[in-house]
């Protein structure tokens, strides 16, 4: 093949794969709409404990004042969100969940009745 032909192929974009990487971490992480990150308590809670019962790894502890989830044990299955009768737990969209210490993985929310 002559060199000029080869260049013509390149100009046509044959063999070009486009961009396969994303801007992250220089830009925001692009998560699909269905992504299930850490469970978050967003609404009212009457500490009924259905979420703690539904959790297969016992990562959730609920008292009358605090809702605590241990992200070190969480398997992000979404059972707590489905188990909440008030629909107050949602699977969040924050994928940056690392912590410097083990205790940092325990996330607490104040219970609002």
């Amino acid at each position: 093949m002559k060199v000029t032909n080869l260049f013509r192929f390149y100009r046509l974009g044959v063999g070009k794969r486009g961009v396969v990487t994303t801007r992250y971490p220089n830009g925001p992480a692009e998560l699909p709409a269905a992504a299930q990150c850490a469970p978050e308590l967003t609404g009212k809670c009457d500490a009924c404990g259905h979420c703690a019962e539904a959790c297969p790894t016992k990562a959730i502890a609920v008292t009358t004042s605090k809702f605590t989830i241990d992200l070190g044990d969480c398997i992000y299955c979404g059972e707590c969100a489905r188990g909440c009768p008030k629909g107050s737990i949602v699977m969040g969209k924050n994928c940056e969940l690392s912590a410097r210490k083990r205790e940092g993985l325990e996330v607490s929310y104040d219970v609002r009745q």
């Binding site: 998560l31 699909p32 269905a34 992504a35 299930q36």
Partner: peptide, 8 residues
Amino acid sequence: LNDQVTGS
């Protein structure tokens, strides 16, 4: 694609 369809 799996992530988009099922969230995992």
